[in-house]
Computed example of a mutant assay.
Amino acid sequence: MQRIIVIAASAGSLDPLKQIVSALPVPCSASVFIVLHVGPNQAVLPALLGVLTDLAVVHAEDDTPIEQGHVYVAPPGWHMRLETGRIRLDQGPKVNHVRPAADPLFISAAETYRERVVGIVLSGYGDDGTDGLLAIHESGGLALVQDLDEAKVPGMPYAALYGDHPDAFLTAEKIGERVAALCG
């Protein structure tokens, strides 16, 4: 069964994202979804990550089918949610003071794909991803958090620690290895 990997990223997470994406095997049996707090004007993440892998790395588009071996990035200013087999985008209210936010993605993934979801919280300010990671964990999915000592901005990893009991705190390299093993 196809794995769904969801990643929350913010300040200090570009290098960890690069490590994780470059570790993805080709072919990859999973679909990867990334929310990076970039504000409404930056749209370069797919290009930055796309040079690191032979997998397709694209901005998500509303109502498109989810494909294995693709990395989908939430477009600036849009929340990304998952339905059975489809991506949905909306410009609803900010969540945790940001749009895109990880919690809408994580919660929708947990509700739809249950134990097939791997949730990852990386470096960043605030607590985005905490409620969603808890939903993933309670649905039988895997909850991973970047090592607190490695995270350049440990706010999101700390919030995840206090909001849930993640399955593991790992360095970005180890997260990449774990995700690669799940995708192979």
Results as ranks from 00 to 15, higher is better:
T84H: 01
D128S: 04
T130L: 09
T112H: 03
G12V: 02
A168H: 14
L52I: 05
A181Y: 14
A159G: 13
A74G: 08
L148W: 14
H165K: 11
G155W: 14
L144I: 09
L161W: 14
W78H: 08
G92W: 12
E177K: 10
Q91N: 08
H59V: 04
V179G: 04
P16Y: 15
Q68K: 10
H37D: 06
S13M: 08
E173G: 13
E111F: 13
N41K: 11
N41R: 13
G184S: 15
D90T: 04
L24N: 02
T112A: 03
D164P: 02
V153R: 04
I120N: 00
D147M: 09
G124S: 07
G39D: 09
K152N: 06
A110S: 10
A172G: 03
R81H: 10
H137Q: 14
T53Q: 02
H37W: 13
L17Y: 13
D90E: 12
R86A: 00
L36D: 01
S29L: 13
M1V: 10
L36A: 06
G92H: 07
A56K: 14
F106P: 02
I136Y: 01
L133A: 09
A30E: 05
S123N: 12
P166T: 15
F33T: 02
I107H: 01
A60M: 04
E115D: 15
L148C: 06
P25Y: 11
S108W: 01
Q146M: 07
V145N: 01
G163I: 12
G132K: 02
I107E: 06
G163K: 11
H137F: 10
I7T: 03
P27R: 10
S139H: 09
D147A: 12
G140F: 13
L45Q: 03
G12M: 07
L48T: 05
A172L: 07
H165G: 08
I7P: 00
I136P: 00
S10T: 15
D63Y: 00
E111N: 13
A11S: 13
P100R: 02
Q68R: 14
A181G: 08
A135M: 09
V121T: 02
P100Q: 09
S10W: 15
G163F: 10
M156L: 11
A60C: 03
Q2G: 08
V32G: 03
V21D: 01
L105Q: 05
N96I: 04
L105A: 03
N41W: 12
F33W: 12
H79Y: 09
T171H: 13
A151Y: 03
A159R: 11
L144H: 03
G50E: 06
A143I: 03
L45W: 00
D128W: 14
F33I: 01
T53N: 01
E177R: 09
I7C: 04
R86Q: 00
P27I: 10
L105H: 01
G141R: 02
V117R: 05
E173D: 15
D127Q: 12
A180D: 06
A159D: 14
I120S: 03
S31V: 00
D128K: 05
D167G: 05
G141P: 00
A135Q: 09
E61V: 01
L17V: 15
Q19N: 07
R81W: 03
L45T: 06
V95N: 05
L49E: 03
C183R: 06
T171M: 09
N96T: 05
A60V: 00
D62T: 04
D103C: 08
Y162T: 06
D62K: 10
D15C: 04
V57W: 00
